[in-house]
Amino acid sequence: MTHHIDVSTVLRGAVCELYSNLVTRPTGAAVRGAIEALLAERNPPTITTIDFSRVNLLDFSCADEIVAKLLLRHVEAAHAADPAPADDHYVYFRGMRDDHLDAVEAVLERRALALVWDFDGVPSLLGSVDPDERRHWEFVRVGGPVWAPHVARALDSPVERSTHVLDRLWRRRLVMRSAEGFLVPRGISGVAA
């Protein structure tokens, strides 16, 4: 199920009607809390588009509180030995301008996280991803849904290796696992409401 959350609307609702800038840690923590409350109401599996297109300024503190900590929560849940179906949430970011990306990329690097975002309508990776992860992810983006043997064959990689990399990408919430195979989460594009 796909959902859409306009961060600017959350900011005004959760913190202050007059604010248009995502600055300061308390603001970021309040916005993340409100987003998490919205996500908790939804039945997994979900793909939630977190939309920054109406956000004016995003500073490093807010990027860390909103983006990095939101991802951390989902990634930690997926790293459990037996991840609960209730934790099967994915987030897809859109509407991030260059200046937003400066802050977001810095906090992702700091915490060794990565995310999927909408770059000109195409799902793209941002953050800490090794070359092998990126290669596998790109193949899944173009060819998904696919299973590991198919990816391994196409990338000339041992099946065990591709299985391991795809599992890692899944636990990092960068690919989804469906009945048909691995695929890249795709959010809602072109919505700014």
């Binding site: 840690r25 300024l57 260059d98």
Partner: peptide, 20 residues
Amino acid sequence: TAATMGFGMTLSEACQNIVE
């Protein structure tokens, strides 16, 4: 023009140094 947003971020972080 990209400098304007970076400037705002810089100002914000410098001020937060006081608050925190």
